[in-house]
Write a protein that binds this DNA or RNA. Sequence first.
RNA 1: GCGGAUGUGGUGAAAUUGGUAGACACGCUAGACUUAGGAUCUAGUGCCGAGAGGUGUGCGGGUUCGAGUCCCUCCAUCCGCACCA
Length: 933
Amino acid sequence: MEYNFSEIEKKWRKHWAENQTFKAEDASDKPKFYVLDMFPYPSGAGLHVGHPLGYIASDIYARYKRLCGFNVLHPMGYDSFGLPAEQYAIQTGQHPAITTEQNVARYRDQLDKIGFSFDWSREVRTSSPEYYKWTQWIFKQLFDAWYNLSTDKAETIEQLLAIFKSAGNANVNAHTDYTTVFSADEWNAKSEQEQSAILMEYRLAYLADSWVNWCPALGTVLANDEVINGLSERGGHPVEQKLMRQWSMRIKAYAERLLTGLEKVDWTDAIKDIQRNWIGKSVGCSVKFSLASSLSDPDTSGLEDNVIEVFTTRPDTIFGVSFMVLAPEHPLVDEITTAEYKAQVEAYKTAASLKSERDRQADVKNITGQFTGAYALHPFSGEKIPVWIGDYVLASYGTGAVMAVPCGDQRDYDFAKQFSIPIKNIFENVAIEEAAYTEKEGVITNSDFLNGLAVKKAMEVAIQTIEANGLGKGKTNYRLRDAIFSRQRYWGEPFPVYYKNDIPYLLADNQLPVILPDVDKYLPTEDGEPPLARAKQAAWNQFEGDRMETNTMPGWAGSSWYFLRYMDPKNETAFVSKEKADYWNQVDMYIGGSEHATGHLLYARFWTKFLYDLGFISFDEPFKKMINQGMILGRSSFVYRVKDSLKFVTNTKKDNYETTPIHVDISLVDNDKLDLEGFKAWRSEFANAEFICEDNGDYICGHEVEKMSKSKFNVQTPDELVDKFGADTLRMYEMFLGPLEQTKPWDTKGISGVHNFLRKLWRLFYQDGSLVLNDAPADKAALKTLHKTIKKVTDDLERFSFNTNVSNFMICVNELTDQKCHAKEVLEQLVILLAPYAPHVSEELWVILGHEAGTISTAKFPTFNPDFLVEDEIAYPVSFNGKMRLKVALPATLSAKEVEEAVMALSDTQKWLEGKAPKKVIVVPGKIVNIVY
RNA sequence: GCGGAUGUGGUGAAAUUGGUAGACACGCUAGACUUAGGAUCUAGUGCCGAGAGGUGUGCGGGUUCGAGUCCCUCCAUCCGCACCA
């Protein structure tokens, strides 16, 4: 019997599907283990070999955990709302649901071929109404919640309303920018409209006018992380700034908890650092500067009522302030600018607003600014400080204004030099002629009550004094911004929101889901309204008030909680039941790409914390451990076209001609050798191609490692490899490629090595068509090989070293082959070890070993017995001055002293000593001998 | 500029705590076998050298009996952030 992988694999996939082998039970005596992959967006292109890499690793781990006696949850689904299906709909008119359905079917087909142990009964799709009903429901909870800083958690708006009605907002400590204080009576006297507007300032999901990244080509708003270098991530269209009324999520309320929560999770430092950086915490204090009116300019009278509030991380340098800078968009700019400077300030503001965010950032070297004519007063010295505007100050960070300390900040220093503003030095014994002194150490001078204090101490004293004088207070700022939650797209979740007199209201729970209505076209309306504005009233399954919300939710809405839905995917009365959420709890192992560091992974943590605050789940971090698989790069092939001709020259001779490299489809290339006829047939323009070949008549292509993409013709699909070599080979080969986390080039050359390994394994069972398995007790060498392998495989799995495990299996099979071992006793254990990696052939061999069909996934994982590894002899490497020169086999029982004596007695030792006496002999028992001479 | 990661044969890589550098595999060389199979088997394969031997983990230093591994300087590549006060 031969190793017929295609029949074996087909048979077992059918068996698993029919018997629901991998269905997870919601309750079990076994401990639970949740292994999750980041679910894919089902794109039209299907899977390439890079996609399954993480899925294979997680599948191996899930299968391993099952063998270790865990109740494993290992689900899969689709993040099926998204732009490509919508773009396709715009072009063809085909409803995105149809496109999505087709793509999902193709993905499923491809995934099935690889033999994953997913529990498909739990599949979720973010675009199905049964799923997005609950996405809408969670949105409702966010709308109906505020953040209580006193309890440091989200609470319901109902609770907040009760306080407002009985006591006003004076004692409410909420995360909000709303500063007006009102009493209970005042609140109760307000109109519904006024109350709604105030509550909006507290809600975690809120409507606000915000500056957004507007992409005219896509007709939609994009999140910061969907914009790359001023272009849209999808499509590469230009993006501009625009003020729009948008739904936002008050994620800033969770900034500190998102930061501290990172300490509780087992993620790589790289991802944690990206998130920390994104949250961007900085500690300092706010300081209020009052404005001075000028006697000579009557225009400035009354200015002293205004204050400019700044945020600084260096309150210790307050006496170094020699000017202030406001962002051009700062609301006080118009008010404080004197008549003399009006025109120049207006011109500067206009110039700044015309520059895109991207230009402003790209233009760091070019220092620009404009004096406003106004002066502020130093809070301690009372000195007059000129107030400038400059676009290096960002309106969206801190207070949009800075106190400039040129001696301690390089940007302030450059600005001062540019505009000849005096620079005051407040650092003792530090030269600032060339550059600012930005170290946070040293001693402060020229600074009144801070004189003689070390920087750290001066910060404390400065904050104390500022607070004591009512000039400001200690404050922490975060760079993290609230997340815009509206998109002007069709293919996303509709909001469970309607408007009456322009006040937004939620639909009732029993009206959910609000189903995506049909529209005639998937484009924005002529007035720039989102596509849903095209829907006729009758097209909505729910319609209340004057109009429905026509924005849809962003892509990250559905993916921020899908891991919870897998726990209870069919629940019609809750997004997940409390019991099931308690049972399955956190994701124990999450595998996916690191590109989601500031998007999905941050939002999912935010929603998890929110749902935890409201008591729906009992954990506040979703992903306990995470591994980020590296990208698999493609290997592109090139042909070299001789300039102005249809001649193509082989790689080794291309330097003799003037050529242009052209990407050629990798399916036409085998081991760099081009299929000439295939190439001519590939594209009509090459039908009459001529070739300048190697001397043996072959045409050899050049190659380069690049990202896989259709346009580079270097996409390798898993399907053809599965057909050629089988899923078990593909699974093992993808693991064998290198460490999971590493970026690595794809190359099919090595796949035969893995395939040959499986054939060699098969030959331990069948040789020349007949079964060679025997019941005889295994000899010592075979047991040693087996237990050595058990140990290595277990250890390597625990540290997620999937690649070295493949070689462990190869070594094991090589040794057993050399030993001519066909003992059931040994092979049975080996097959269980291998089952997570090569599940199909393992199932087949398991049956051949006499077990019931389909039971290997519940077998017991072998345990390592060190007794089998005990050695009688150790081959000691002997080095001289650290260089290994010879080996000597000595009994394992020898003491260090005995080893030394035995080694010194060797004639070879004397030879290497060249007659010199050894100065020192180091013996590490069981390991090595080093002789220093 | 800041933060993170990586750098080892012709190629993918291994070396978990400092202890034989290059396991395992691809490729290549030579040979065997044959029912010609993306077979199988044997031997070899870091570099220099006929050999003895020398040399070798991005560069340069250091610690140590011993360094791919620890410390310092520098270089290169990749990823993320970037006027964040």
